[in-house]
Design a protein around this nucleic acid. Structure first.
Lengths: 344, 344
DNA sequence: ATACCGTACTAACGCGCGTTAGTCAAGGTT
DNA sequence: AACCTTGACTAACGCGCGTTAGTACGGTAT
């Protein structure tokens, strides 16, 4: 079977009409008069032949690609526990499928060449782009937006004027740390979700931590801050480092990522210390496993799926309505208190 | 900026040559004589204009799309904890990037219309397809393979003759249960990773469980088998069900998915029972968090990343070499014994 | 009988590219 | 002097589609 791709010409011949008519019928073109009988003939012929328009030809002939891109930086070892990506995809895929779109993934190494998404745009492969965790030093991204290319960020890029769906990381982190403070903790460590690179979220969460301390009149201590790197192992290592220095020994830790927090929790328990009695723990993200670990993890719930869904809808508006106004959506977070911060 | 897409004609004019020459130079076409001086002029012109070939036009004129598809069924609530997908993507993205390919995601609802991937193929949008967890009742998939369309499965489709990268689920499960038996357990429950649908892995793992029991001369008890559904919550519920019936009370459980096992573990601990002293637990997958939970989870390590990588390479061979022989790769699994099955 | 109009269709172009089948001049052979 | 080569290019076609600018024709209005 399937030797020769069935083209609209084949359909036309079979229906005894011109290719133009086939196109008019199949695309339901407004303002064209086609007799009902002819229309049925064309429809029947198309069905019988199993006609599927050649995507590339459709695109070339000056239509939309009906494809959107999802770009995310790929830091080493990040992907295998990238819950956030999964949840975003979950929300996004729903929108994409609903509108008959296709999703093209672009995930460059987190190196210099981190702009392969540009090629997608330049080669006209996608109608719009959703960018996860944009780098603040990404100039090309701002250029794209200025050129009016449909672009939605999940995360933030300060200073630009780009549509985005984000949360207030700083306030959320502050709130989480204030919870620990209200439990009476004074020596509170911080383990970040990632190295202080060019991603803003990490920095914002760290700032929120400092905000809370400052408001409580507690001096910021550099030695209590450790830099995780996406993985549980990194959290394990950071926490082990903290535990090794007895002078530091915190009574609580704010970990800016649940996945990293799982590692930290493990490190504590390996030392036969208890969570939360010896060290209380608060995470960030509320990944689906947070309530099932032992003890259940107190954390900041992020509306990840919703971010994906909204980013998709927003992008669609940008693509269709050509509305050049950029819209920034800020979603709410919620502190979910569980057993890792308050003793049962 | 960027008003008019820069075409090869623009490059040709700027370099003072024909479009054909531009194409020859940029594509390094064998067997064409282009003077080095001309070549440099073309290269310079292309660079200066920022020329990027129009993807759709290339596809239409040439043959390759330089895009491959990744399809996976999307069961409700599965995606947010779909570690396996992430790891497969991790491996696959590496290959894809290395070869300058693009990845198109297709994830239909797990309903009847689960064959939207067919449209990708028919519309000539992809050169090849990788299918995660194929449904055994998917006739179209076999049809594709028979037509010689490059197709690689991750998971298995019995009876067909399709290239695949898989593990021996049955043997792995049996091995896991034998480990519990060797620890002296006789009443061993089983919680599956998913409902007994049309996915073979679930069934295989259940068969492995039965194999082990049978070999040990233990009668199979239907009441000890519960059906999870991808999520930790489902594991929690299944285990709660087991614990509620005192007559059943197992001393160990084989859970055919780490994620589900996390939920089961949580259910046990909520009852103030201990793992492994009261109930020993073995999972399946060795997700990156398995060693960081409390207690660390004994589990079957799956080479998920490697499956993704190999599937990519295999697909590439099918696309390039046109080798019509289908290859089935079976990778090894490994039982990783941790604290959830053997008391520290 | 002529002009006019709406209905039902179609010829032909262009999207941007890869590629085949050339052209043309310069030098080499018999 | 007539006939190949060979090197360096180019004209032109076709990929499959959407779409613009028509054509043909039966039926009214003048």
């Amino acid at each position: 079977m399937a030797r020769h791709h069935v083209t609209s010409r084949d359909v036309a011949e079979r229906a005894g009409v011109s290719r133009t008519t086939v196109s008019f019928v199949l695309n339901d073109v407004e303002g064209t008069k086609i007799s009902d009988e002819t229309r049925q003939r064309v429809l029947a012929a198309a069905k019988e032949l199993g006609y599927v328009p050649h995507a590339a030809a459709q695109v070339l002939a000056g239509q939309r690609t009906r494809t959107i891109g999802l770009a995310f930086p790929r830091a080493p070892h990040h992907l295998p526990t990238h819950f956030f990506l999964l949840q975003v995809m979950d929300g996004l895929l729903r929108v994409v499928q609903q509108h008959g779109l296709r999703l093209l993934i672009d995930s460059p190494d987190d190196g210099r060449s981190a702009r392969s998404y540009l090629n997608l745009v330049r080669a006209k492969r996608i109608d719009g782009l959703i960018m996860l965790d944009p780098r603040s030093d990404d100039r090309a991204l701002r250029g794209l937006a200025e050129d009016g290319f449909p672009l939605v960020l999940i995360g933030d890029l300060p200073g630009g004027d780009i549509s985005s769906v984000d949360v207030d990381n700083r306030a959320a982190a502050r709130n989480a740390v204030e919870h620990l403070l209200s439990c009476g903790h004074r020596r509170i460590a911080c383990i970040t979700n990632a190295p202080l690179s060019s991603y803003t979220a990490t920095e914002e969460r760290l700032l929120g931590y400092r905000d809370a301390l400052e408001a409580a009149g507690i001096a910021y201590d550099d030695a209590l801050v450790r830099y995780g790197a996406y993985t549980p192992q990194s959290g394990f290592n950071c926490m082990t480092g903290l535990l090794n220095d007895v002078r530091l020994l915190p009574t609580a830790a704010f970990v800016a990522s649940d996945v990293v927090a799982f590692g930290a929790m493990s490190a504590i328990q390996r030392r036969d210390l208890r969570v939360p009695e010896d060290i209380a723990l608060v995470g960030f993200d509320d990944v689906p496993l947070a309530r099932f670990v032992n003890p259940a993890l107190t954390t900041v719930r992020l509306p990840a799926t919703e971010q994906g869904r909204l980013a998709g809808k927003l992008l669609l508006e940008l693509i269709l309505n050509q509305l050049e106004v950029s819209r920034r959506i800020l979603l709410d977070t919620e502190l979910i208190v569980r057993a890792s911060s308050v003793p049962g």
